[in-house]
Simulated scan of single mutants.
Amino acid sequence: MVLADLYPFIKATHVGLALLSGGLFAGRGLGVLLSATAPMAPWVRRLSQVIDTALLGAALLLLWILRINPFATPWLLVKLTLLVAYIVFGTLALRRASTRTGKALAFVLALCCFAVMAAIARTHDPMGMLRMMGL
């Protein structure tokens, strides 16, 4: 068996982990905005790190199998740029922003980045949602 034979499993794992990661972030962000302590508990933070590490591993395997250079593929380059923005907004939303309003704004922006990344991944087009709407 070669690695390419595992492509469907790796892709499904990547998609599942992306949904799990986004869902966990959304839950943690809401919890932080509601002043709960559980979203920042060490075990929750570790779980998030494990999921995100596995997600990155699956993404790298997919790139390897498909022999894709993400910096030469427009839709992947846009998705990676949005990933950086998602991480920045996510850290602001969960701990770095000093005010509740700042955390809320960063949380909404992070969720927007996540939604656009999902649309880009689905369409393989840097225009993402606009292509999904037929524009």
Rank of each mutant, 00 (worst) to 15 (best):
M1Q: 06
M1S: 10
M1T: 09
V2N: 12
V2D: 14
V2T: 14
L3Q: 00
A4H: 09
L6R: 10
P8W: 06
P8H: 04
P8T: 10
F9R: 09
I10L: 08
A12T: 12
A12N: 12
T13Q: 05
H14M: 10
H14L: 10
V15K: 00
V15C: 03
V15A: 06
G16L: 06
G16K: 04
L17P: 00
L17Q: 02
L17Y: 03
A18P: 00
L20N: 01
L24S: 07
L24M: 14
F25K: 02
F25N: 02
A26K: 06
G27S: 08
R28Q: 14
L30V: 15
G31S: 07
L33Q: 01
L34G: 06
L34P: 01
L34R: 15
S35Y: 13
A36Q: 15
T37F: 08
A38W: 15
A38Q: 14
P39W: 06
P39L: 08
M40E: 12
M40D: 11
A41M: 09
P42I: 13
W43Q: 11
L47H: 08
L47G: 10
Q49F: 09
Q49M: 11
Q49S: 11
Q49K: 12
I51D: 00
I51V: 15
I51E: 01
D52T: 08
D52M: 04
T53F: 11
L56C: 09
G57L: 12
G57Q: 03
G57F: 07
A58E: 01
A59H: 05
L60K: 04
L62T: 01
L62N: 01
L63F: 08
L63K: 02
W64S: 07
I65N: 00
L66C: 05
I68E: 02
I68W: 08
N69A: 13
P70N: 02
F71G: 05
A72V: 10
A72G: 05
L76V: 11
L76R: 04
L77K: 08
V84C: 07
I87A: 13
V88Y: 07
V88D: 01
V88P: 00
F89C: 10
G90L: 07
T91P: 00
L92A: 07
A93N: 01
A93G: 06
L94D: 03
A97Y: 05
A97L: 04
T99D: 01
G102P: 00
A104Y: 05
A104G: 08
A104N: 07
A104I: 11
L105P: 00
L105F: 10
A106Q: 05
A106Y: 03
F107A: 04
V108R: 02
V108P: 00
L109G: 03
L109W: 03
A110K: 03
L111W: 03
C112I: 15
C112D: 11
C112Q: 09
F114C: 12
F114M: 15
F114A: 15
A115Q: 07
A115W: 09
V116P: 00
V116K: 02
M117W: 05
M117F: 06
I120V: 12
I120A: 02
A121K: 02
A121Q: 03
A121W: 03
A121E: 03
R122C: 12
R122H: 14
R122A: 15
T123L: 07
H124W: 10
D125N: 13
M127G: 11
M129G: 13
R131N: 13
R131H: 15
M132V: 15
M133T: 14
G134I: 14
G134Y: 11
